[in-house]
Structures are given as C-alpha cells and as structure tokens.
Design a protein around this nucleic acid. Structure first.
Length: 569
DNA sequence: GCCGTTTTCGGCCCGACTGTTTTCAGTCG
C-alpha cells in the first residue's frame, strides 16, 4: 500500500506551501487529503487503476493528477520544483513551538537559517533578534521551543497520558472554585498516542485556577497563563493545557476542546448551514445563546445523535449521527472476562491462585490463563509436560470456586514455518487458544498468521501486527488478507490492551468489524497492575466502532463455549 | 486545493494568547 507514502508527500507539500505563504485553504486541502489517505482502508493503487481517485473525499482534479503522476512515474513534478528553494530541515524547523512559517521564511531569507543548527547559531549570535518584529521575549520563546523539541516526547502513549491527567484532575478538583473538570482533547478520544494533554474545567475565576495550575510542583516551564487558558511543561517532557470556562459553557467547551479538529470543522460547517454558530461558549442563533451547558445541547440542536468522543475523527460519524446510525459501542462494563493472562508458570509475576483472586475481584465472571509455549525460551515458555500440569492445577482451583471460572489456555507461538508450537492433540485439551508471533518477524508473517487462523483449535490471534508504540513498527503483515481469512473461519483478532501495544489499532478494528470479524479485548497482563489496562483496549475497540456483539469476551462462559464449536466440531 | 438541495464561482470554523505594536500579526489548538 502506497497510501501512507502519498499521504506523507501531501503533508510535506502542505508545509512547503505554508512556508511559501500560500493561501490557507489550499494548505488545508493538502492536509485533509493527507489525513483521508492515511486512514483509507482501500489500496490507493487499486482506486487509481479503476479511475476512481476523484471519488475519494478531499481528492479533486488537481490532487488526482498528482497521485496519477506519482503512481505512474514515482515523481510529482510540482513537488520536486517547490522543494528547490526551501530549507533542508523545513519539516523539523516548523515543528518548533513559536517558530511558525512566517518567522521561518524571514529567517531563511535574511539569515539563511535552514537547519536546527543554523537556528541555534542565529539565536546565540543575536542575529535573529535583529530581524524586524523580533523582540527579546519572542527570541527567548523560540529558544524555549527549540529546547523543548529536543527534550520532550513528541507523542505520549495514552497509557501514560491518562494517569497524568488523573493526577492533575485530582489536584485541581480540591480547589473550591472548580465546579466541573474533565480530560478533553485526544486523551478523551482515547487516541493511542497524544501530542499534549488537555484538561477542561468550569470555574468562575479562571485566572486564579490557571495560576494554581502553573505553580504545580511538577511544572518545569510555563508556556502561557491567561484568564481562560494555561499551558505548561511537566518534568521537561509533557505539555499540558488547561482551559477554564464558566459553568454554563462547560458542555460547549467540552465539545470544542475534545475535537478532533476535523470533526469540529465539519460540525461547524453544518451549524453554519443551519443558521447556527458554535464556539467554546455555546451554540448561538444570531445573538441568542440556545445551549452550551451540556455537550448534548450542541448535537441535539443540530438534529443529530450525540457522538461518543472516541468516534470524533471525521471518519463517517457525522453522517451516521445525522441518520441515527451511531452504534451502541462496547463498554468496559460489558467485558465479562480477561482471556489472555500470564502466571509465574512462564513470565508472569503471580501464582495462578493469586492472579485469579485479583482478576475475580475486578468484577469479571471468568478468565483464562494463556502462558507462553516452549519456543518462547526468553519467557520461560511451557513444554507439554508443564502445560498439562498447569491444566491439572487449574482444574483443582475451579473445584474450589463458585461463580467464577478459570479457563486453561495457552499463548502458543506461531513458528517460522507457520506451524504451531504444540500439536493439535495438546491444543485439544485446552479450553482456549491464543496464537501469536514472537519470533522471526521478517519471515512471512502473513502466511504464518493465515496458517494459524486455519487451525481449528485457534480461537484468537494475539497482538496481530506485533507493533510496540514506543519502539518498533509492526511486522509487515497484510491485514486485509488476515481479516478476510478470520471472517471465513470465525477466528477472533485480539485487541491487546497493553499500553505499548494497542494491537489491533483502531483503524484495523474498524476494518475487521466491517467484515464481521470478532474481536477479543485482553490485557496480556503479566502482573497485577497490568489488569486495569483493559480500559485502554476498550477505548481502542470503541475507536474502531466495535459494539458489544463484536467482542467475544462480552459473552458468558457458556456462550463462549458454544461459539468455539464453530471450528472445533 | 475542494466543493455544490443557496453556488461551476466564491465560499472555505473560531477564538485565545503573546509580543510588539499604537491597531495588529503570528502562532497555536
């Protein structure tokens, strides 16, 4: 798929246009096309061959011609030409806070600032300060922006951002001035990684609260602090923004600051057509404020369903809400079991009984131990003998339990030749089987996964793409083929909730659910503290439009056993 | 650049904060 490559080209071209001072609308057109392309589930090359490019939203005649040029010759002449007179490091330079396209263009023209090193020299020598419109503070802010770029995390995993938000919310909640407070932005939408953390509060005295916020002990830098908006850096790494509004605007502000930007733009266009105006203070007709205290006010006045935050990405949710087709998404409370949990039989930290007790205390009605198989030597994987011993121990534990069931399963390795690490005669003795790739990532992961899907005992493919958000791309696996095969056999695909995995991703979930493939949301917990990450997996599944019926671990244990018969019979 | 039950031309979301201004431009979300 060349979709992402072309999306990146358009996105870079938008930067170039911005640097050259082109019209904002044109720049937006490129950015929108880049976003649509990167989220498209169909191969752009196929669409191109079938001459359907202009049917893709955001692609018109001009961009279709550029895609055509790229796919036939590997080049876009306009882009090559436009690249000639821009700084080599333009894309890095533009990512510096407080150093926008206008300033970058001026510094390039006057001082030939083309790289991060050039910029640092121009700052140190005082040359930058001599440019028109530059003052002492502006220069200082650019220096801060450059420092921040080099020290801060560019994107934080949702698994790290959520606890950060919770901590700040708890701290600010103690202020009597605060009427309401909540996460907003991409954290509320449960994006897998976030650029910064947004918090929204309702209070009468905004300036006072923002002062308190900017003086929190973890704050290492204050980027701004006004009456409604404060922005700080925590521990030199994480940017956190706080917005404060009056209580009667809280709902409108929640809508506004939850985004996404693309979602909001669409919503405001619709509002405008209907004669309304939306901003962070409310929804208005003329000078009259019609609502804003509750987020539902906005959507209902526009004659559409309220949209869960996880769907607000302009991926079809607005059309669905206008025609009453927003699905009832899976919720954390729907999850009856965690079906991929490790014990100290392999590389988990707890004994079977200790882990089972903890899982049971979380309100689940059953669970499954899935320890590693023997090929996973680094993880103390189980051979046949130890696996059978574990099955026996689980049987005995079940005899002592009421109203909670432990399933005996395994996370069996998919070997480089596509076979599984245990024979079918062993797998047949298990209650539940997750099959995963842990080694030889470059050895034909697609064919190996397909082979595992076709094994009658495999219930779920574990972390199907193998990605680690902070460390590595997934292996090169053809998800469309995997989804198609899973649809045929009824095999489920895992949403692994571990903060660094979130695998499947939201878009892959959406594609799978569209093809009626079942999802299994698991924590892959190796320790007690991993269990609450179920919320991250549920958030990811919701972003993929998954409903309760799409998720197998919302079933009762009896229903699950019935479901397994589709293959095993 | 895209797009069209107001339009094939003329629209294209809306506001806060900062700094350097003396009424506003640049940046950001």
């Amino acid at each position: 798929m060349q979709n992402q490559i072309i999306a990146d080209i358009f996105s870079r071209f938008a930067d170039v246009l911005e640097f050259k001072g082109e019209l904002g609308f044109k720049i937006n057109a490129y950015r929108k096309a880049a976003r649509v392309l990167s989220e498209l589930d169909e191969d752009i090359e196929k669409i191109w061959k079938e001459k359907r490019l202009e049917q893709v939203p955001g692609i018109g005649r001009g961009l279709a011609e550029k895609i055509d040029a790229y796919l036939s010759t590997g080049q876009i002449p306009q882009f090559e030409k436009a690249m000639l007179n821009v700084p080599g490091d333009l894309f890095k330079l533009l990512s510096i806070q407080n150093y926008g396209p206008k300033t970058a263009a001026l510094a390039y023209k006057e001082l030939a600032v083309g790289t991060l090193e050039d910029l640092k020299s121009a700052l140190d020598s005082g040359e930058l300060a001599k440019l028109p419109g530059m003052g002492e503070k502006k220069v200082e802010n650019i220096r801060k922006g450059l420092d921040l770029l080099q020290t801060s995390e560019s994107r934080i995993s949702i698994g790290l951002a959520l606890p950060l938000v919770d901590g700040i919310v708890e701290f600010l909640k103690k202020d009597k001035n605060v009427k309401k407070i909540t996460a907003a932005g991409s954290v509320r939408r449960f994006r897998e990684t976030v650029h910064d953390v947004d918090i929204l509060a309702a209070a009468e005295n905004g300036a006072e609260l923002i002062q308190k916020f900017s003086r929190m002990p973890e704050v290492s830098q204050v980027l701004g602090a006004g009456e409604t908006k404060g922005s700080v850096v925590l521990q030199d790494r994480y940017q956190v923004d706080l917005r404060v509004v009056k209580p009667d605007s809280f709902g409108a502000a929640q809508q506004y600051f939850t985004g996404s930007k693309a979602h909001n733009v669409r919503l405001r266009e619709i509002a405008k057509k209907q004669g309304y105006k939306i901003n962070e203070y409310g929804i208005f007709k003329g000078d009259q404020k019609l609502g804003g205290g509750r987020e539902e006010d906005i959507y209902s006045l526009l004659d559409m369903q309220w949209i869960p935050p996880e769907l607000r990405e302009d991926r079809g949710e607005i059309e669905a809400a206008l025609s009453n087709r927003i699905p009832r998404l899976v919720e954390r409370e729907d999850i009856r079991a965690d079906l991929h949990i490790h014990s100290n039989y392999s590389d988990g930290h707890l004994t079977l009984v200790d882990m089972a007790r903890t899982v049971a205390s979380m309100g689940y009605s059953y669970m499954c131990f899935c320890d590693h198989s023997k090929a996973a030597r680094y993880a103390n994987g189980l051979d046949e003998k130890r696996l059978l011993k574990q099955i026996e121990e689980i049987k005995k534990l079940n005899e002592q339990l009421e109203r909670f069931t432990i399933l005996a399963g395994c996370e069996v390795d998919i070997l480089p030749d596509g076979s599984l690490d245990f024979d079918d005669s062993i797998l047949a003795q298990l209650d539940f089987v997750v099959a995963s790739i842990h080694l030889a990532f470059k050895t034909d992961p697609t064919q190996r996964t397909l082979a595992a899907i076709h094994n009658r005992y495999v219930d779920v493919i574990g972390h199907p793409t193998g990605r680690l958000l902070s460390r590595r791309e997934g292996f090169e696996i053809q998800m469309d083929a995997v989804i198609k095969a899973a649809a045929q056999t009824g095999t489920a695909l895992e949403v692994n909730s571990y903060w660094d995995r979130l695998d499947l991703s939201d878009l892959n979930v959406k594609n799978a659910v569209n093809k009626d493939v079942k999802i299994c949301i698991n924590t892959d917990a190796h320790a007690r503290e991993h269990l609450p990450m179920m919320a991250l997996g549920v958030g990811t599944a919701r972003r993929g439009w998954a409903g309760k019926k799409d998720v197998i671990n919302t079933m009762t244990v009896e229903e699950l056993k019935q479901w397994q018969k589709r293959n095993r019979a």
